[in-house]
């Protein structure tokens, strides 16, 4: 099967090799396609079907009851869901902040420093370490009375530093600070690659024309990295909708649901509240948001990106 006869005529060989290529193609993609169909595509469809039911997965399949759009209607009256969704929208703010910092750092690291690769590694460290470890460390760092952050703040003269993760007003901002901290390294690396692809003679020409650093940034660097910015913006926004583990470990949605997000509420509803149907309707809201962002990407790319 793997060997072709060397004596075969040239014309026949071409035809046969196309057919063989075709069979080989199916064999080569089969494991991946089967895996994706069973573990991603079928589950996506099942989630949609389940979102129209009132069902708990611990009772058998015969207990499934279709209730139409009632789960979705219930979402609109569910305060915890509304808080979670609102928090998801607030978390989107993390992305532009990340992008601004990482672009500034990338421009500086690209042109104005020694020890480039050391700096890259340093900024990238949070991204490779496990989010569970990061969350546990920040729980201690942010600890209200004895944590190093508040001790330092008190030493600097702030008598009543915020209670961070324990305070309903500061908990979500604390989570956002950590998310920015974790994500900057990734954006930085991508930006550095984009900066290296900008032709050097553009800057030389600008130098001849007497352009200053800021003009060069706004007229050359910023427009030329705009495809990268767009890419990072879209993947970043999508990934904030996906964030779950940081919330689960850091605050478990608390205090008083102030850091709950849709993924977290979905998990609680599905695996602790055991409401499979209801949880599935949240899953589709989540999917809807991600699809919306992707569609905006598809249509917006041509309009907003300067190549």
């Amino acid at each position: 099967m793997l060997k072709t006869e060397p004596s075969r005529k040239a014309s026949r060989r071409t035809k046969r090799s196309v057919e063989k290529g075709s069979l080989a193609g199916y064999i080569f993609v089969a494991p991946m396609m089967i895996g994706l169909i069973v573990l991603t595509i079928i589950p996506t469809i099942l989630t949609l079907i389940l979102s129209f039911t009132d069902w708990s997965f611990i009772s058998g399949f015969d207990k499934i009851r279709f209730i139409g759009l009632r789960n979705y209607a219930q979402l609109l009256d569910d305060d915890i869901f509304k808080i979670s969704f609102k928090n998801n929208l607030i978390l989107l703010l993390v992305v532009p902040v990340q992008l601004i910092f990482s672009l500034i750092f990338a421009v500086i690291i690209d042109k104005y420093v020694y020890l480039k690769s050391l700096l890259k590694i340093v900024f990238f460290m949070p991204y490779i370490s496990s989010i569970v470890a990061v969350a546990i460390v920040f729980q201690l760092l942010f600890s209200p009375s004895f944590g190093p952050i508040n001790q330092t703040l008190r030493a600097l003269g702030f008598a009543n530093p915020p209670k961070w993760l324990a305070d309903i007003h500061y908990a979500l901002p604390s989570v956002m600070i950590i998310l920015v901290w974790v994500g900057i390294g990734f954006c930085l690396i991508i930006y550095l690659a984009a900066l290296q692809a900008i032709p050097k003679d553009l800057y030389e020409a600008a130098d001849i024309d007497g352009a200053g650093t800021l003009t060069k940034f706004s007229k050359i660097t910023f427009p030329l990295v705009s495809p990268t910015t767009f890419f990072l913006l879209v993947t970043g926004l999508i990934s904030t909708f996906k964030s779950f583990d940081i919330i689960k470990v850091l605050t478990d949605g608390g205090p008083a649901h102030s850091t709950s997000v849709v993924t977290h509420y979905l998990y609680n509803t599905a695996f602790e509240g055991l409401k499979t149907g209801y949880a599935s309707s949240m899953a589709w809201v989540l999917l809807g948001c991600v699809m919306l962002i992707t569609l905006v990407q598809l249509y917006g790319q041509k309009k907003w990106v300067n190549y």
């Binding site: 573990l39 991603t40 589950p43 997965f57 779950f244 599905a270 899953a283 989540l286 991600v290």
Partner: peptide, 18 residues
């Protein structure tokens, strides 16, 4: 299809995966 599955958030399909 492969590209489309890329979009699906993990958490939204854990129940059926389970």
């Amino acid at each position: 299809i492969v590209l489309m599955t890329f979009m699906v958030p993990n958490t939204s399909i854990i129940v059926p995966q389970f």
